[in-house]
Design a protein around this nucleic acid. Structure first.
Lengths: 352, 352
DNA sequence: AAAAAATGTGGAAACCTTTCCACACAATGT
DNA sequence: ACATTGTGTGGAAAGGTTTCCACATTTTTT
């Protein structure tokens, strides 16, 4: 394969000059430029990016770490991130952690090994310390890894509150939520430090949801009884696992009429309800949290709290590129608004 | 950042010796090994992968080109490919062509520029010639790029036939299919050369589907009238586009009772039918082609022709690694069986 | 007209590895 | 006792760029 030296030799110029022609930098006379350009085309010369990367210590590649591409939320996020990075001239290295700590560590290693210029991660399996050590461009989505690592997430507090309110307004009285959780070990660690929601912002939505429902319970004591229940989706993966959980929940709490769950789980609960002849939305209302296009495509009639994936991706990419370009970051924690997509008629309005 | 020279110097050994310790190659005395190892840990030395890549002219990275990650079929395929590559020590570069020719070309350029060791592509926007030129490891999924580029695909002929038969057996009489197409320009080129299905194996399923239905039409002439209709999904992207098409189709052919369409489209047709009060599967039966987990998760009751994504990914990765390792390839075209998932009671059985 | 700035060019160092080769010494074979 | 093989080590080249620096020539400024 032809190298720049070959080109320079054949064109009868110095290597530096050839390089300048190739990169369009510095001073080169028009005459020389054309001569070199002709040789380049003749020899079919293509610069070796590896050599460039080494010399500049830059790869124009960003690693995106996520637990599972086939999960619609991550797929949508990945699509957006890849697109934005591509527009900015960066390549995307896909890193599926598969929920395994060792994988995530190996991916972060790529930063040290100079393989990628930066990392955007949606995974959070490693101990907090592991991240703080790495003084390299990094952005996390939906989990706080360390003080100096920028994070972007949705306003989950608002999201949880709105979800509960939506169900209450639609007349639900027996309300249920499927709590997402992180790894058990991390949960325990969190309990000790009581900073759970500080480290994992998404926990806020569960807290806000419960709080909103319990507030309503107090207020509505006289008129109508409201009940609240929940379950954990600890380490559940795959549709079957959620489906099984849905069965158990419907068996245990036959009277629930309002559910909040993540898209993926929400759909399984919906299907199970359908199988049991529970009518949606008449007998049961579901709010899907995340509200990805995929979920709404399948269930156009489902209500949801929609995370604005495009904006999350936009902020994450922006924050990463700032670091790569060594520019200052103003806000280390960006919270983006959620969208409320309410397909249920509110009771008050219905009564009019 | 510490380099191997620093390590060698500090340990009082030659660079070559340090390299041998790092890579565990050649002869090194136990004493020296430990001495160097200690320095490595002390200095927190990590080899610069870029220099390695340059020296060995290998990146251990594979580019995966696909039109759209958020499409469930590609997401599932990507997940599997990434997993298999990771197990083999390769990294995955994600390349979304977004259905644009220029993107695909840019990604293929990465091969020339030594950025990736090989390419697995599911996209096929470029002219056939463009691929044949590139004498580098490459595998295509579902499209024949050139004689020497291995391809893996499902047995679409069987798939199309089975899909039609399934609908006919279930008693459908007015049968419809949504034909997937490639870029218009390519279609025209194909028409000229009359090799359409040779270049794009997936076209086989549409041919086989139509053929099966038309055969049934002839045979069943006396007993009951069977009709066949179709539409093209030329360049449709996004749920809305398919939904709109579904509306038009139901308006134009109000009596259809059997449809074959790709997962993504099938769901939109299903939703539109639902909205119109057409009962599935009583009044309308749909066969989803691809049968990804995602589609079956949403519509557990849907029948489908399922492509075995894990096997497709397995073959593709195997064929690519053979090329990268410069080993001979026996079969350049691998066809994998499809799975028939039939949820409809066949009429003959029902009549008994 | 002299000084300064702009333009054009090439050699060589630097980026950090791996690996070829040469050399030295010990152990083994005949 | 000498040749052969095995073990251990380091210098230097090679991989292909980019960029710093030095130098030469031309143009502009004062």
């Amino acid at each position: 394969m032809a190298s720049i030296t070959d080109v320079a030799k054949k064109a009868g110029v110095g290597i530096a000059t050839a390089s300048r022609v190739i990169n369009g930098t510095g001073y080169v006379s028009e005459e020389t430029r054309q001569k070199v350009q002709a040789v380049i085309e003749e020899m079919n010369y293509v610069p070796n990016e590896l050599a460039r990367n080494l010399q500049q210590n830059k790869t124009n590649t960003v690693a995106v770490i996520l637990p599972d591409v086939s999960n619609m939320f991550f797929a949508a996020l990945l699509k957006e991130i890849e697109y934005l990075l591509r527009k900015k001239g960066y390549k995307t290295m896909l890193c599926c952690s598969d929920g395994e700590e060792t994988n995530e560590e190996a991916f972060l290693d790529m930063l040290k090994r100079n393989l990628v210029d930066g990392v955007i991660t949606t995974s959070n399996l490693l101990k907090q310390g592991s991240y703080a050590e790495i003084k390299r461009p990094m952005v996390s989505i939906d989990s706080i890894l360390s003080e100096d690592i920028p994070m972007v997430c949705s306003n989950h507090k608002k999201g949880g509150k709105e979800a509960a309110q939506m169900l209450l307004d639609a007349g639900c009285r027996h309300i249920f939520q499927v709590r997402d959780t992180v790894d058990e070990e991390i949960r325990n660690r969190d309990k000790e430090h009581e900073i759970s929601s500080k480290l994992f912002p998404f926990v806020e939505r569960h807290i806000a949801f419960e709080k909103t429902v319990r507030n309503a319970m107090k207020k509505a004591k006289k008129k109508s009884k409201i009940s609240y229940h929940e379950t954990l989706s600890l380490g559940l993966t795959g549709a079957d696992a959620y489906r099984k959980q849905a069965k158990e929940v419907f068996d245990k709490y036959p009277d629930i009429d309002g559910i909040m769950a993540t898209d993926f789980a929400a759909i399984q609960y919906g299907i199970e309800a359908h199988y049991r002849g529970i009518k949606i939305p008449e007998d049961l209302k579901i709010v899907a949290y995340d509200g990805t296009d995929a979920a709404r495509m399948f269930y156009p009639e489902i209500s949801c709290i929609r995370q604005q994936i495009d904006k999350i991706a936009g902020e994450a990419v922006k924050l990463l590129l700032l670091q790569i370009d060594q520019k200052p970051i103003r806000k280390y924690q960006v919270t983006l608004p959620v969208q409320v997509i309410n397909k249920y008629e509110s009771e008050t309005r219905a009564n009019k």
